[in-house]
Simulated scan of single mutants.
Amino acid sequence: MIEPPPAPGAGGTPGPDAYRGMPPTVWAPPAPQLIRSARMLIVGYQADPEALAEVLPPGLTPHSNNLVQMNMYEVAAEQTSGFGAFSLTYLTVEIEGHDSLAAEGAMPIPGRFFAYYWNSSARVIAYARESAGIPAQYGTRRGTVDDGVLTSVLTVDGADVITARATVTDNPLGTLGGHLNYYAHRQIPRPEGRRAALSELIELPLPFVVDLYEATVDEISFDFPEGHPAARLAPLAPLSTPSVMWADVTFTYSMGRVIRDYLAEG
């Protein structure tokens, strides 16, 4: 059982064991941060509902649609307000009861919980972990388009672990604006182990504007090493992708807010 951290010192000042943030070994810019016109492939695919429930923290339940939203993209330094260049892949689980709205309030969108997140930038990894509680780890995404077919690949530890292929076009489908509600379980251990310094549910309200283009997803393959937990979120066969977005996306990495403190709850 994880024990709560010691109480603050006298006078309301932090005690000697209080959490003081990540060591300043990697510079990360302050929140929020802006990303401009990132060409993304975002695919909502159906996965095993038991696997979805397993990755969620207390208080969150999978949406009845059983969707994982997978996002894959890369950006140049001039597209970011402080991150520099990076590539990214993440897997989020859609959840019940935390919808946001798009299309001037006419379109509800389920909330999304960060289950897995890979990034090529140590700067962005530090920001994502510290500012948002996102379980960021190192990985690179590369994407190529040949004769209208996009091949998008995530590489971790020298191995290609996720590959998505889609038929993509530059045929515009319009522009959409709104908010997305993202969630993360911010868990930071005590340096000596055994206990948590923080265990919080973080909400990240994310404003966005997207220019949409026609696309269809043809294939998604997971090739994680045997026993890797992310393999549990692989698409069910046959592949079902109720939502596909091939788009230029402008959005913020917003400031997170604590909506539940698990340590305070005992």
Rank of each mutant, 00 (worst) to 15 (best):
P229A: 00
L173H: 05
Y127T: 03
M255L: 13
G143Q: 14
L176D: 06
L41F: 06
P32S: 03
S64T: 15
A237F: 00
E78D: 15
A47G: 00
G111R: 07
A136F: 07
R112L: 13
M22Q: 13
R112Y: 09
R260P: 04
L180F: 11
T25I: 13
A51Q: 01
L52G: 01
Q33C: 12
S243E: 09
D147R: 10
S131E: 14
N119E: 15
E94P: 03
F208S: 08
N181R: 07
Y183R: 02
I42D: 13
F114A: 11
G143V: 14
A196V: 05
E50H: 01
P24R: 04
P207F: 01
V145K: 10
A215F: 01
T89P: 02
Y138L: 15
R39E: 03
G9I: 09
V145I: 15
E214C: 00
T169R: 00
G177W: 10
F114L: 03
P235V: 00
A237T: 06
L150A: 06
P225K: 00
A38R: 12
L180P: 02
A230H: 05
Y213K: 11
D223T: 11
A115G: 10
P135N: 03
A126D: 15
L212T: 13
V249P: 00
T216V: 06
H228I: 01
P108Y: 03
T140Y: 13
Q137L: 00
A28C: 07
R186M: 11
G84E: 01
N65A: 08
Y90R: 11
P189C: 05
